[in-house]
C-alpha cells in the first residue's frame, strides 16, 4: 500500500485506464455523470401495466366467442327501461340546436 501511495498520480491514472481497458468499462477519471445509470436501470412500464388484474368485459367475451350468442341481460334491461320511460314521456330531452333552445346557455346569458 505504501508503495502505491508513493507512486506518481499519472502512473495511477495509467493503471486505472488499463483496468478500464481490461474490464471494458468507461474510463472516467474526473467522475463526470454520463447518464448511464438511467440507461442501465430496468424499465418500470411492464410491471406497472400488470398492476390491475385483467378483467374480461362482456363485450370482449362475446366478441371472442360469437358462436355462443351470449345475451347481456343488464344491457337488455337498461334498453327496455329506457324505451318504457320514453313511452311515458319521461325520456331525455332533444338536443338543443341553438343557444336560445339550451336552458343552460340561456341561463348564463341572463346573468
Amino acid at each position: 500500500m505504501s508503495a502505491l501511495l508513493t507512486c506518481a498520480r499519472s502512473r495511477l491514472l495509467e493503471l486505472t485506464r488499463l483496468r478500464c481497458d481490461i474490464f471494458s468499462t468507461l474510463y472516467n477519471p474526473l467522475g463526470l455523470r454520463t447518464g448511464a445509470k438511467y440507461l442501465r436501470a430496468r424499465l418500470r412500464g411492464p410491471s406497472m401495466v400488470q398492476y390491475y388484474p385483467k378483467q374480461l368485459s362482456f363485450k370482449e367475451l362475446s366478441r371472442a366467442m360469437p358462436e355462443l350468442k351470449l345475451v347481456n341481460f343488464e344491457e337488455e334491461q337498461r334498453l327496455f327501461d329506457v324505451a318504457e320511460r320514453k313511452k311515458r314521456g319521461k325520456g331525455a330531452p332533444k338536443k338543443a340546436k341553438s343557444p336560445e333552445e339550451s336552458r343552460r346557455l340561456a341561463k348564463k346569458k341572463r346573468k
Partner: peptide, 23 residues
C-alpha cells in the same frame, strides 16, 4: 397513465440520459 408510461418510457429514458450526461 400506466399504458402511456410504458409506451413512452424508452424515449423518456433516452432523453433523461442525454440531459444528465455531463460529457
Amino acid at each position: 397513465a400506466r399504458v402511456e408510461v410504458q409506451d413512452s418510457e424508452v424515449l423518456r429514458r433516452a432523453y433523461i440520459a442525454v440531459a444528465r450526461n455531463e460529457t
